[in-house]
Design a binder for these strands. Structure first.
Length: 103
DNA sequence: AGTAAGGCGGGCA
DNA sequence: GTGCCCGCCTTAC
């Protein structure tokens, strides 16, 4: 078991709460952990995501609706989202606000 | 122990 | 809508 920091663990848990077909933002996650300005830290935690399939890190997008980045490639991220019913256009989530899941 | 980098956010011109 | 700045938090080497 690697040294999972509280922060990381918190993010991972929150990610698992995200229902399929929905997306959240780094800012929301940061806010959920009590650090609304820790969006970067969130991205970092998610990036090191130990259980990629178990933790829907691909369901995390930027605050402006952009896909953001992905350790395996944004294309892969979009692919996964599309499979879950999330439509992505030109690197941005369609109806982002509508499928945005907030804690 | 200190430094660098990171899958960002928000505000302003 | 675009571009630029700074700020914020954490992890890893």
């Amino acid at each position: 078991m690697k040294t999972f920091t509280e922060f990381e663990q918190r993010i991972l848990v929150l990610l698992t709460m995200i229902p399929p077909g929905k997306v959240t933002t780094y800012g929301e996650l940061a806010r959920a952990v009590g650090r609304p300005k820790a969006a970067r830290a969130v991205g970092n935690a998610v990036n090191k995501n130990p259980d990629a399939p178990a933790v829907p890190c691909h369901r995390v997008v930027k605050s402006n609706g952009e896909i953001g980045g992905y350790a395996g490639g944004t294309a892969q991220k979009v692919k996964f989202l599309a499979k879950e019913g999330v439509v992505v256009e030109n690197g941005r989530v369609k109806d982002f606000k509508k499928i945005l899941f907030t804690f």
